[in-house]
């Protein structure tokens, strides 16, 4: 397994090695040691590689991941897995702001807590946070699922489109146009499958509440002007 020590090897070499992987290549498992908070670690993956990062990373780790499996044995800075297309990103520690921002697919699992704006503008990604999330999470979220085993901060789901939010703990406040919705059997089933995929064994889908868009901001209507 190729091991990249970022205390001696430039990040550029590591990312280039990931991009140079050809279809059907055998050596697809990478290890990164001494990441030391580097930004843009393992960005632009375009092949089914696996990357184990031994330590904490800075901004945009696994950005635009398309098909890779990236595990960070530490915490992640802002924008982890931003705009992910497909694949899996697991953060063993905590994640900073904008985790999973604009993600279009794949699964992001955060074993600790996530800071503000988790899942902002998400467009199809599934995000599972074992701990709690900060304020303004799922702002303008368009589609996908955000699952939170802990609590959510202020203004959850502000100006939400069609993303589904599931929170087990408390929600400090809901943002404009975000409302609690009924957990119907199909939601319990989908959430159960997602929890299983994310390796969560200590939470039952029935314990979650579902939040979604009231859809009152979908068309301009002067009677809604106060909501903005």
């Amino acid at each position: 397994m190729p091991v990249f020590d970022l205390s001696v090897t430039p990040l550029r070499e590591f990312n280039q090695a990931l991009h140079d992987i050809k279809d059907g290549a055998n050596d697809t498992a990478f290890e990164v040691v001494n990441p030391r908070g580097h930004h843009s670690v393992a960005v632009g993956i375009d092949a089914p590689v696996s990357v184990e990062v031994k330590g904490s990373v800075g901004y945009y780790c696994a950005g635009m991941n398309d098909g890779g499996t990236v595990t960070v044995h530490g915490s992640a800075g802002p924008g982890v897995a931003e705009n992910m297309m497909s694949g899996t990103v697991v953060i063993e520690g905590d994640a900073s702001q904008y985790a999973g921002a604009t993600g279009r697919g794949g699964l992001l699992v955060i074993k600790g807590n996530a800071a503000s704006r988790c899942g902002i503008s998400m467009k199809g990604i599934d995000i599972v946070v074992h701990g709690s999330i900060g304020h303004m999470s799922a702002f303008m979220a368009q589609s996908g699922n955000l699952v939170v085993l802990g609590d959510a901060g202020d203004a959850l789901g502000d100006s939400l489109y069609e993303a589904r939010l599931f929170v087990r703990g408390s929600v400090k406040s809901l943002g404009a146009d975000c409302i609690e919705k009924e957990m119907r059997p199909e939601h319990i089933e989908a959430l159960g499958a997602l929890l299983e995929k994310a390796g969560v064994s200590d939470a039952k889908p029935e314990d979650f509440k579902r939040y979604g868009s009231a859809r009152t901001l979908y068309t301009f209507n002067i009677d809604n002007a106060d909501a903005y």
């Binding site: 990040l11 990312n15 945009y60 635009m64 924008g79 303008m140």
Partner: peptide
């Protein structure tokens, strides 16, 4: 959605270059 201010922009541009 994932950067604010010139210091973040520098990191964002770097990410786009790396990708």
């Amino acid at each position: 959605p994932d950067w604010t201010g010139p210091d973040d922009l520098e990191i964002k541009i770097n990410e786009l270059r790396e990708i």
